[in-house]
Design a protein around this nucleic acid. Structure first.
Length: 1054
RNA sequence: GGGUCUGUAGCUCAGCUGGUUAGAGCGCUCGCCUGAUAAGCGGGAGGUCCCUGGUUCGAGUCCAGGCAGGCCCA
């Protein structure tokens, strides 16, 4: 005989068992093997860095990254899920710096680059085990054994191939990148680091004169023979020696003002704030008129003809200063770009230590910030200083050593991504984004303002930039593979085995193909984002091997990561693929929101509010967290991670599924139910069976439709609705079918239906909550079924089995039941008390078939249900006099008329007055009754109460006659005995001996129903006195002071 | 400063192309039901739908301008 065990109640224990099952049977591996010949569905793993501990936020994209591959696998697709690890980059270096106690490049050099790099390599695996444990425990099926690792020589070789390809196509070039630079540490800082170190400081703010020396090339002409200067402004006086130009806004209004013996030019909008004392406006002109004006700079460090004149620039604003911006290409990003566009000279009188060089003798050797007062004093002496004052603003400092950062134009290699801007925009339009605004807005906007990609980093731990420069002739060439390196190396043997990292690869020199000289590698490594952005190609070590695998898995059908990857991984994948393969590397891209703490703040290390995922996994289980994330709100919405919220799905949804199964298991075991021995016959399906079978189809349709549109919340909502229907309607109303003895046709139909519903449900749930789905599936599966629910086919809708008429009838029945309970509640009549009659008025054309009406009768415990279009028959309309109208007109006759109106039947009177007034004789008087003299009130017929919602109304007949009263009493007693059984701790199936004693009247009623009572409470014998011993006894108090003493004794097992 | 999202009950969120009295879940409270359930059902309390204008017969919904918060980028 088949036994169905109840499921383990503790979700954590249950999930651990399932994990073991999967491991034992290699379920994941099997799911791949069995789909190997199916159509591909390509997924790319965005690689995490394992040098940090995983936190709750990391789970958010991962649940979707698991859901869709599982779903597609069950639909027969072959979904390769190669894991990946991102391993290079500055964050890793910083961790190691902290560990070994250094914090600058010179210190790293003296520590030894080789030792340092080895430390980095170890560091990236620090939390690998943690990550793997988490991924496995959450039921995320991904191939970690064959994960790609960005630091391997194979991966680097593929990246080299990409870079060399770009180089050969002329897409790599050398330029300057302006970045916040720490002169003490000798390194540029990432924006993330800069953000940590802003402080409010006071700097000198100076306004100074740049005398105009020539108007030959401009529309503007000098006038009056007075000294005329352009007024400019800066908060970094030390950059003035590097001045090479001034920039103005072409379309803004500028004025020339006279003040004392001189004239000054500045923006009209800033006049008030910039000038001191009275000034007379001489003339006004747009900025464009001044373009080409030559001026005398404070320090003339170049003789370049392009220098020291006025240019137009879009970044000039009217917020502060004078609207005339001092340009030093070496010390500002905008400045540098303008310099590139206009061909300005690059004046750089400051060394990498932040000290002035001999190029600027006044301050040579001095740290730039210390030079500020020297420069200001010098300008003052020479009469160039118009005004100087302290200025408070935010300025970045090095977060490590507190040195003020300098914006410094550093040598850098770039990828000419701007050349592919239009292609990328076009490709982006072909990608389906979830949500759409990430693609259209966030990334779209970024692409519109695309800049070239600054690729190189002057660091140690990263993919080395594969460019070698000849020491003799300066020829630059790119190495495109290990073989290429060996072929061109001066020491081929060494090149064959050298690790492709600094410092090892730096030692490899090449023979210059142009001149035969010695070529050395540039010192840079590349931006780590290029590593991960290359995974579409490098994960397969393409083009050196796996050509077929690469072709089969490009582009991806689906990727998903956190929102902040938009300009990170989402962009770098798009950029590299568009350049190299001419196509976007993914078709559907989902961005997830942030994990917030209970106060709605972003989780971050610095705030100390990061949540360890294990705190919830170990209490509520993986499925609970998964379902919480799927069902609570759209993927891209930020989620507050609070205990109550995360826990909710456990009892609300998952336990409902478990209990529905447990219900089945309880009775199926009692009855020895076996689907093979007790097949369900379609002809025996009850209305409930047919209904839930139809719901199974519509739920499947809803889930599949939603998932195909990547709409996870709707899919989850459809499943929740189905589980509610199954548990709280199908099972609830079907309970009596399972209680009956034996195994009749109807019972077999009920078992068959419930079993099938649970099996289909387990498959529907499998991608969402893989553990619970498996737990439900395992005990139910038949001999020929797959070993795991995850090896089953995902349900497909069978439209022919949908009975929408029945579904909407049942919908109505459920709302009628709700109304009925409401009416009973209002009338204070318990459901246990049978009532005679309920009337429903529904404007819809839904006619309830007899079987559905029966369900309602049972649910509401009424003898008869009537569905009518019009409730008229149950309403009493009464006519009432309207004294406002009668009083003034009839005076003393009023009361008589009123009495007469009250005496009339409302409908007769309404008919009589339909065409106008009537004249009647009342006690010898003739009185005119007008329509407005009568008001009509509608009231329910005696004994009825009403409940309504929206368009439906329900009337409940609350009159209880003697027969109903007896029925109610009997049911009450049965109920009390059942409660007593439970209190006594008896098992559901225990047979008992029942004894009771009560007054004569009640005794007579009970005697009448004795057989029913015995059947209901599983009594094999009934005694009418309390003599003898009872295992459990109690006195029941009923209404009106009636009492029944009962005694229960269990029968020994036969 | 630019882009973008969000603002609805104590909390978490629904409210489709504008259409009666703004909903659900959790929590609170009163009652019911219970031979599966940590469940279910019903009643109640709880809302200036962030603010201000505008369009419209009608605005939580559309438009404009603010305010607040978040994120990405400067």
């Amino acid at each position: 005989m088949k036994r169905y065990e109840k499921l383990e109640k503790d979700p954590v224990a249950r999930e651990l068992e399932i994990l073991e099952l999967w491991q034992r049977t290699d379920a994941f591996g099997e799911s791949l093997r069995q789909t190997e010949n199916g159509p591909r569905y390509v997924f790319y793993e965005g690689p995490p860095t394992a040098n940090g501990r995983p936190h709750f936020g990391h789970l958010m994209p991962r649940v979707y990254k698991d859901l869709f591959p599982r779903y597609k696998t069950m639909q027969g697709h072959y979904v390769v899920r190669k894991g990946g690890w991102d391993t290079h980059g500055l964050p890793v270096e910083l961790e190691v710096e902290k560990e070994i106690g250094v914090n600058s490049k010179p210190e790293i050099e003296s520590y030894g680059v080789e030792r340092f790099v080895q430390k980095c390599k170890e560091s990236v695996w620090r939390y690998k085990a943690e990550w793997e444990r988490l991924i496995r425990r959450m039921g995320f099926w991904i191939d970690l054994e064959n994960a790609y690792v960005t630091y391997t020589d194979d991966y680097i070789e593929s990246v080299w191939w990409e870079l060399a390809t770009m180089f050969e196509r002329g897409l790599l070039y050398q330029g300057h990148k302006t970045l916040p630079y720490c002169p003490r540490c000798g390194t540029g800082l990432s924006s993330h680091e800069v953000a940590q170190g802003y402080k409010v400081v006071e700097d000198p703010s100076v306004f100074l004169r740049m005398p105009i020396v020539s108007d030959a090339a401009s529309v503007y002409k000098l006038d009056g023979g007075v000294r005329t200067s352009l007024l400019t402004w800066t908060t970094t006086p030390w950059t003035l020696p590097a001045n090479v130009a001034l920039a103005m806004a072409a379309n803004e209004a500028y004025v020339e003002v006279e003040q004392g013996s001189e004239r000054l030019v500045l923006a009209k909008a800033l006049m008030e704030r910039a000038l001191v004392g009275d000034a007379r406006i001489v003339r006004e002109m747009p900025g464009r008129d001044l373009l080409g004006v030559l001026y005398e700079p404070p320090y003339r460090l170049t003789s370049d003809a392009a220098a020291y004149q006025v240019y137009s620039a879009g970044f000039v604003n009217m917020d502060d200063g004078t609207g005339i911006v001092h340009i030093a290409c070496a010390f500002g990003e905008d400045d540098y770009r303008l310099g590139q566009e206009e061909g300005l000279p690059f004046v750089q009188p400051v060394d990498l230590g932040g000290r002035f060089t001999e190029e600027f003798p006044l301050c040579a050797g001095q740290f730039v910030k210390d030079a500020d007062p020297v420069v200001v004093a010098d300008l003052k002496n020479r009469g160039l200083l118009y005004r100087s004052m302290p200025y408070e603003h935010d300025y970045p400092f090095c977060w490590r050593c507190d040195t003020p950062l300098l914006y410094y134009a550093m040598d850098s290699w770039y990828i000419r991504t701007t050349e592919f801007k239009d292609r990328m925009i076009e490709e982006n339009e072909g990608i389906s984004w979830y949500p759409s605004h990430v693609g259209e807005g966030r990334l779209g906007d970024f692409l519109e303002n695309l800049k070239d990609w600054a690729l190189s980093r002057d660091r140690y731990w990263g993919t080395p930039l594969n460019l070698w420069v000849c020491e003799e002739c300066g020829t630059v060439s790119a190495v495109k593979s290990r073989a290429d390196l060996v072929a061109r190396a001066t020491d081929p043997e060494r090149a064959r085995t050298v690790e492709l990292h600094r410092p090892y690869v730096d030692a490899i020199t090449l023979r210059c193909e142009a001149c035969g000289g010695v070529a050395r590698r540039v010192r840079y490594v590349i931006d780590t984002w290029f590593d991960s952005g290359s995974m579409h190609t490098a994960q397969w070590h393409y083009p050196f091997e796996n050509e077929d695998r690469f072709r089969d898995s490009f582009p991806a059908d689906f990727i998903c990561e956190a929102m902040e990857q938009t300009r990170g991984w989402f962009y770098t994948l798009l950029a590299t693929a568009t350049i190299l393969h001419g196509e976007a590397p993914y078709r559907n891209c989902m961005a997830t929101g942030l994990g917030l703490d209970e106060n709605g703040l972003k989780m971050s290390k610095s705030k100390g509010n990061v949540l360890d995922p294990w705190t919830y996994i170990d209490r509520f289980g993986a499925d609970c967290i998964r379902w919480y994330l799927f069902s609570s709100s759209a993927p891209w919405k930020s989620k507050r991670i609070g205990e109550a919220a995360v826990q909710e799905p456990l009892y609300k949804f998952l336990d409902t599924v478990r209990n529905t199964y447990d219900f089945f298991a309880l009775y199926a075991t009692i009855d020895g139910y076996d689907p093979d021995v007790h097949p369900a016959r379609e002809a025996s399906f009850s209305i409930l069976d047919r209904w839930i079978r139809s719901r199974l189809q519509t739920a499947t349709r809803d889930v599949v439709t939603a998932l195909d549109a990547y709409d996870v919340v709707s899919a989850a909502a459809a499943l929740e609705a189905f589980v509610d229907d199954l548990s709280n309607w199908y099972v609830r109303l079907s309970r009596r079918r399972f209680w009956r003895g034996g195994m009749g046709e109807d019972k077999a139909a009920a078992y068959g239906t419930l079993r099938e519903a649970l099996l289909v449900l387990s498959r529907l749930l499998a991608p969402f909550v893989p553990f619970l789905a498996e737990a439900v599936y395992q005990p139910l599966r038949a001999g020929g079924d797959p070993e795991s629910v995850h090896l089953c086919a995902y349900p497909a809708v069978d439209e022919d089995s949908v009975d929408s008429a029945l579904e909407s009838e049942m919908q109505l029945a459920r709302s009628i039941a709700a109304l009925g309970h409401q009416a009973r509640n209002q009338a204070q009549v318990k459901v246990r008390q049978p009532l005679a009659h309920v009337v429903i008025a529904s404007p819809g054309d839904v006619a309830l078939r007899a079987e559905v009406q029966e369900l309602i009768e049972r649910e509401l415990n009424v003898r008869r249900v009537d569905v009518v279009k019009d409730l008229g028959a149950y309403l009493t309309e009464a006519a009432a006099p309207n004294f406002r109208s009668i009083g003034p007109r009839l005076g003393a006759s009023g009361p008589k008329a009123a009495a007469w109106i009250k005496g009339q039947s409302a409908s007769a009177l309404r008919n009589a007055l339909a065409t106008g007034s009537v004249t009647v004789a009342i006690g010898g008087e003739t009185v005119e009754i007008r329509p407005e003299d009568v008001t009509y009130t509608v009231s329910l017929s005696e004994g009825y109460v009403q409940a309504e919602t929206g368009s439906d109304r329900l009337l409940l007949d609350t009159r209880i006659d003697e027969d109903l009263r007896r029925q109610g009493l009997f049911r009450e007693v049965v109920h009390r005995i059942q409660v007593a059984r439970k209190d006594a701790g008896f098992d559901v199936t225990d047979r008992i001996r029942l004894a009771y004693e009560t007054d004569d009247a009640l005794g007579a009623i009970l005697a009448q129903h004795e057989e029913e009572i015995a059947a209901e409470v599983l009594a094999v014998s009934v005694k009418h006195d309390m003599k003898g011993k009872h295992e459990y006894s109690q006195t029941i108090e009923l209404d009106e002071g009636r009492r029944v003493a009962i005694g229960l004794t269990r029968m020994q097992d036969a």
